[in-house]
Structures are given as C-alpha cells and as structure tokens.
C-alpha cells in the first residue's frame, strides 16, 4: 500500500471510531446501570419497588418503595408543564408572528439568557424569593412545595419550548399564510386555523422536549421542593422527586447495600422514562419534516 492509502485508511478508521463512540458510551452506561440496579431485585420484587408506598432506605429492614418519588416527579412535572406549555406556545407565536422585528430580537436574546442560567443558580434564587413568597401567599407552614418546584422548572423549560416552537412556526410555508390572507382571513384567523396546524408536529415535539428537560432536572428542584418522600396529596406540600433522591442519597449510601442498588434502579426508571419522552419528541419532529 502506498503511504497515501495508509493515511486514508487510518483517518477513515479514526472517524469511524469517533462515530461509534457515542453508541458505545450509551450502551456501556445502560449495561452498568442495569447490572447495578438489577441486583436490587434479588431481594425485593419489582412490584414492591415500583408500587411500595414508603421510602425509608436506612430503617431496618429498609423500605424501598419509590411510589412517592414517582408521584412526586410526576406532580412537579405536570405542574411545570401546565404553566410552561401554554405560556411557551403563546410567546413563540408572539415572537414569530406578532412582535415587531426589534422587539423580536430583544426577546430572543432574553430567552437565550434564560436558558444559560445554571440550574443551581435558579434554584438558589427560587429558594430566597419564591419560597417565602409561596409561604406567605398561601399561608402554609413551608414554602418548599411541589408548586414552587413546578414554577422554577417551568422557567427552565420555557426556553426549550419557545425556541423549538418558534422554529416550527417559522418553517410553516409562507404560501399557506398568503392563501389564507388572500381568502380574507384576518391575521388571527390565519394563525389559529392554518399556521398552528402546519406547526403542530413541531410544537408537540417542543413540549415533549420541555417535559424531558423538566423531568430530568435535579438541582433546582431539590433546592425548592422540601424533599419529603411522602405520597403527595396537593401541590402545596413538600415532595421529593426521583432525581433529587439519587443526588441527595448517593453520597451516603453504603456501597453494595440494598439502598445503593435501589438508587441505581431509580436511575433505570428515569432512563426509561426520559428515553420514552425523547423518542416521542423525535417521532413528532420527523413527522413535521416529512410533510
């Protein structure tokens, strides 16, 4: 082989390796997670783990039911989404269709800044401002509640939802809009009856990615939700999420104990849920591109 061919050969292989690296990493992480997590089920059943109502990892024997944590995560996520999705879609429409060009640029910059704030900083700001505010407004013993977490997480999901929805709205072909205007539709009727249909797959994908962001978020939520591992009955009580549990307890769990394996099993649950959310978002994004 000529030196040139040898060089080509090595470069090709190098690029190939970089390409498959991400696949290998994902596979390794999943295998490791699975290996550690599955050890738990030698001692407790899957049903007791997912459906158990009590999470007392250091009692004897430990109670490792994650139902309160799953419900905590779902409640905080649902609250955040109820706030962020309507607000995000509305501001995406405003930025894409209504705002004058200069205001549009200013808004887009603000949204980028919002997404650049580290979550721990947001959590910290929430802790000193929102937590006392919630406590005072609702007259409850503590402001560390699911609702506080939802509000903070909504702030974090907004940039994702707004920017992806806005892209979807902008990529609706101009001819639809021209057609509707030429038929005598008003700007609002055009938005509501035509543009939103063209942008819908992208808007759904944006919302799913927002949900994924919220569901996987750890730091901010740990700082403002109070972290009580009880089955939540309302938005105004402390809850603990799956993510916060791992972050808070991993340091103190004894390596090789049931508690340690349970945290890995929580990791698997998180992994599966996030994966499902992302796949759903991808489905919608691809559907939008095909049309």
């Amino acid at each position: 082989m000529s030196p040139r061919k040898i060089r080509e050969f090595f470069i090709e292989k190098l690029i190939f390796l970089s390409g498959v690296a991400s696949i290998v990493f994902v596979a390794l992480i999943f295998v490791f997670l699975l290996k550690e997590g599955v050890s738990l089920f030698k001692t407790i059943g899957l049903g007791d783990f997912l459906g158990g109502r009590f999470w007392y990892p250091i009692s004897d024997p430990p109670k490792l039911g994650i139902l309160p944590l799953i419900l905590g995560s779902l409640l905080v996520t649902a609250g955040a989404i109820a706030l962020a999705v309507p607000l995000g879609i509305a501001s995406a429409f405003y930025i894409a269709e209504v705002a004058p060009p200069r205001l549009r640029d200013a808004l887009k910059t603000c949204i980028e800044v919002l997404s650049a704030i580290p979550s721990v900083v947001l959590g910290f700001i929430g802790m000193v401002t929102l937590v006392p505010f919630i406590k005072r407004v609702f007259g409850i013993p503590t402001g560390l509640t699911a609702m506080t977490g939802s509000i903070m997480l909504a702030l974090m999901a907004l940039p994702t939802i707004i920017s992806i929805s806005e892209d979807a709205i902008n990529s609706v072909p101009g001819e639809y809009k021209a057609g509707a205007i030429a038929l005598g539709a008003t700007h609002w009727q055009t938005l509501r009856r035509v543009i939103i249909h063209g942008a819908m797959p992208g808007i759904i994908a944006a919302s799913m990615l927002g949900i994924g962001r919220v569901f996987g978020e750890t730091m901010a939520v740990m700082m403002v939700t109070g972290n009580a591992a009880v089955i939540p009955k309302s938005l105004l009580q402390p809850v603990r999420t799956l993510t916060a549990t791992i972050a808070a307890e991993m340091g103190e769990a004894v390596r090789g104990s049931e508690h340690f394996y349970a945290l890995f099993a929580i990791g698997i649950v998180l992994f599966i849920i996030s994966f499902a959310i992302n796949v759903t978002a991808d489905l919608f994004l691809n559907r939008g591109k095909k049309r």
């Binding site: 072909p173 001819e175 639809y176 021209a178 057609g179 509707a180 030429a182 038929l183 005598g184 539709a185 008003t186 009727q189 009856r193 035509v194 249909h197 063209g198 049309r291």
Partner: peptide
C-alpha cells in the same frame, strides 16, 4: 380571490380547505 402559481391548499382536510373561507367570513 387569488389563485396562486403554486397550488397552496392548507395542511387541513379537503373539507376544511373548502369550508375555511365561509367559516372565517
């Protein structure tokens, strides 16, 4: 009314395309 160079039906059903004008008016 205007008919464009490239046919531009809305991304809606056939029925809703035709019903669009009467509905908005």
């Amino acid at each position: 009314g205007m008919v464009f160079q490239r046919p531009n039906p809305f991304p809606l059903s056939v029925y809703k395309n035709v019903a669009f004008g009467p509905t908005v008016h």
